[in-house]
Design a protein around this nucleic acid. Structure first.
Lengths: 141, 141
DNA sequence: CATGGTGTATGAACCACTTAGTACACACAC
DNA sequence: GTGTGTGTACTAAGTGGTTCATACACCATG
C-alpha cells in the first residue's frame, strides 16, 4: 500500500480549525470501519507528516480525541482507538444528528415544505452517487 | 410596531462572521417576502444599532450585498432591495442548494443510506414544528 | 450656513488558530 | 550507553479575518 493507509487523499477547508477536521476525519474512518476498536493509529509526528501539517496541530487533534474518549494512549506506545463500544456506537449518531440539525437549522427561517427538502436531498444523493461512479474513489480493504 | 420591523429578535452565532450572517438574514427576509423588491432598508448606522453591532460591520454586510447585486444604493439615500427579479428569484435556490450540498457533503464519507437520511430529516422537521408550536414565534404581517 | 443624517474609506486593535522552536521523560534496538 | 522513536508540555511568533474607532464627503433641512 503506497498511499499510507489512505491518509494522503485528504483535503482540508480553511474555514474550520484543522485540528477539528482531523478529529472528524478519524471519526468518519471509525464509523465506516476503516478504523477498528483497539487499532493502533499513526504517531503524532507521522500523521502530521502524512497530512502535511505541523506536529503541534496533530498533537492538538489527538489530545482532543483523547479528551473525547475516542483514543487511548498508554506510555509511549502508539495511541489506539478505544475499545469502549458505547463511545464507538455513539459517534455515528452524533455526527449524523449534528449534521441534520445544522442543516435544518440553516433553512428553518425559509419555510421550506418538507416535501421539497426531501426531494432536494434525494436529488443531491443521486448526484453524489454518480460522481462517485465516475471517479473510482478508494474502497480498498 | 415596537420591535422595529422584527429586526431585534435576531441571534448570531460566534462561528461565522457577523457580516455574513447579516447578509444571510436579509436573504431570508427576501425569500420569505418580508422584504420586497425596491423596498428601502435601514441605514448602516440604524441596522447596526438595532442588531447591536458596530456600524462598520453593518457597512461590510451592505457592501457584500451590494456586490452580490442584492441591494442598490444611489447617493446618500437609503439603500433599496434590487428590483432585478432574476436575482431575487435565485436567492432561494441558492440558499437552499448551498444548505443541501453542505449537508450531504458533511455526511458523504459515512455511507449513510438515503432512506435513513430522509427519516432523520423528517424527524427533525416535525421536532421543529413542535418547538414552533410551543413558542408562538413571530408571524406578524 | 450649521446641523444631522447618509454612504464611504482607512488603519489600528483584536482574536483564534496555526506554526515554530525547544525541551523533557520514556522505551526499544543496536 | 547511544541513538532514534514515542508522547507530552510550554512559550513565542506569525497569520488571516473580523471588528472597532475615527475621519471624510455628501446632501437635505431648518
Amino acid at each position: 500500500m503506497d498511499n499510507h493507509g489512505g491518509w494522503m487523499e485528504t483535503a482540508f477547508n480553511t474555514r474550520d480549525p484543522v485540528y477539528l477536521q482531523v478529529v472528524r476525519l478519524f471519526k468518519e474512518r471509525i464509523v465506516t470501519g476503516l478504523l477498528a476498536a483497539g487499532e493502533a493509529i499513526p504517531s503524532r509526528r507521522e500523521i502530521a507528516s502524512l497530512l502535511k501539517m505541523n506536529p503541534n496541530t496533530a498533537q492538538r487533534a489527538y489530545k482532543e480525541m483523547e479528551e473525547q474518549g475516542l483514543i487511548v494512549t498508554e506510555g509511549n506506545s502508539p495511541s489506539r482507538i478505544t475499545r469502549d463500544e458505547d463511545v464507538l456506537r455513539n459517534i455515528r449518531s452524533e455526527l449524523l444528528g449534528e449534521a441534520v440539525r445544522t442543516f435544518m437549522g440553516s433553512i428553518r427561517n425559509m419555510q421550506v415544505p418538507l416535501q421539497e427538502i426531501v426531494a432536494l436531498v434525494q436529488e443531491e444523493y443521486e448526484s453524489d452517487a454518480q460522481r462517485r461512479a465516475r471517479k473510482p474513489g478508494g474502497e480498498g480493504a
